[in-house]
Design a protein around this nucleic acid. Structure first.
Length: 370
DNA sequence: AATGCGGGGTC
DNA sequence: GACCCAGCATT
């Protein structure tokens, strides 16, 4: 028993809104390098990069990446460290590892090509529902809705869908609405259009409704408060974390770095640092001394803490991290034990975390002289 | 300076 | 479903 007939008002509304959306997209879409291709690998790489950064930041990384590794096979043949070094500065480095895993899996798979369906793409490491749908719809016109944060916002407003989109009830309702709405003729463009609308017009705090192609049929707008959707529960306050960072330099311009073997920042070089349980800002001399001794013993060096430098703050998801860099004198005769090493930081092949790079740039600019 | 956001993995 | 990942744009 078909519930929809050709002149069902619902169906008509969806079709009209879809046309308005695509017409808007055709006039207003940003020209981006990965929008000129139907190559699934190029699109996958762009999607993975865009998961964690803005278009502006990701763009040069994507250009370099594609020039260097134009197919999954090219990446599969590369050293993991080369990828990490190329990814340095983009953040959320775990995704680089997952992309490497995917390249290796694809290179070893039957035909050595990326799967063509969203269902199969979904099985790759680092590829979830959103990314699988985005790649399949954009590269192969598979009619599957790609629902990211932008789409959640646009759809929940347009249809006035209440509830927390992170929870399954609202999530399902939003997905159902997005699926029903999806253009069957241009699914890839439709998906990109909704995301583009969310990024440029239907923004989280200040939606620009007068310029929105969906305004005539938008229920949240009709209700007068588009910002009320989607419903977002208050977040927990970030946990403060205090660290002591050991800044030890040699006269030859090398600096003591520690290579992380575990998450977070697995495979990356960092200033040796240790968490301190403290309320003192800066930490007390005893706490600094403890952290220093810990690093000294792990590295097999003698370290003597000196001046406490200006704190560096950065935050991630639910931690607010304060690092106190300590100018430290080191015994330079002995070779440090792995994973510690005296490193040149103007050596571009070394993957250095953004936080450590900033601390070093601020406190030891001469190390970047080259 | 404080706030808000983001997709995927894992258990 | 809760928590982790190890930043950045917006306000």
């Amino acid at each position: 028993m078909p519930r929809h007939t050709p002149d069902d008002p619902d169906r008509k509304l969806l079709a009209e809104s879809g046309r308005a959306l695509l017409a808007w997209y055709d006039r207003n879409r940003r020209e981006l390098p990965w929008r000129g291709t139907k190559d699934a690998w190029a699109i996958l790489v762009s999607e993975v990069m865009l998961q964690q950064t803005t278009v502006v930041a990701a763009r040069p990384y994507w250009e370099r990446f594609m020039a260097r590794w134009p197919t999954p096979h090219d990446l599969a043949r590369a050293e993991r460290d080369e990828l990490l070094a190329e990814w340095a500065g983009l953040g959320y480095y775990r995704r680089a590892h997952l992309l490497m895993d995917t390249a290796l899996a694809v290179a070893e798979s039957h035909d050595g090509a990326l799967p063509r369906t969203s269902e199969k793409l979904r099985e790759l490491r680092g590829v979830g529902d959103y990314t699988a749908a985005a790649v399949a719809s954009i590269a192969h016109d598979e009619p599957v809705a790609a629902v990211d944060g932008n789409v959640e916002r646009v759809v929940s407003r347009w249809r006035a869908i209440g509830g927390d989109p992170k929870k399954s009830v609202a999530k399902k309702a939003i997905r159902a609405a997005a699926d029903a709405w999806l253009s069957q003729t241009r699914p890839g463009d439709h998906n990109q259009a909704v995301m583009e609308l969310g990024a440029t017009i239907c923004k989280p705090r200040s939606p620009d409704c007068p310029r929105c192609p969906l305004a005539p049929s938008c229920r949240a707008r009709a209700a007068g408060e588009p910002q009320r959707y989607p419903e977002t529960p208050p977040r927990a306050k970030p946990t403060p974390v205090t660290k002591v960072g050991i800044l030890a330099r040699r006269p030859d311009g090398r600096v003591l770095l520690e290579r992380r073997s575990e998450s977070p920042n697995a495979g990356f070089l960092e200033l040796p640092q240790r968490v301190v349980e403290t309320t003192a800002m800066p930490p007390t001399a005893a706490q600094i001394s403890d952290a220093c001794n810990e690093v000294a013993s792990a590295a097999g060096l003698a370290l003597t803490p000196g001046v406490t430098l200006t704190a560096h703050k950065h935050s991630i998801t639910r931690y607010r991290i304060t690092v106190w860099p300590i100018e430290t004198a080191a015994s330079t005769r002995r070779r440090p034990v792995a994973p510690f090493a005296w490193c040149r930081i103007d050596d571009v092949d070394q993957p250095l975390t953004t936080a450590s790079k900033r601390i070093l740039t601020k406190n030891a600019p001469s190390l970047f002289a080259s």
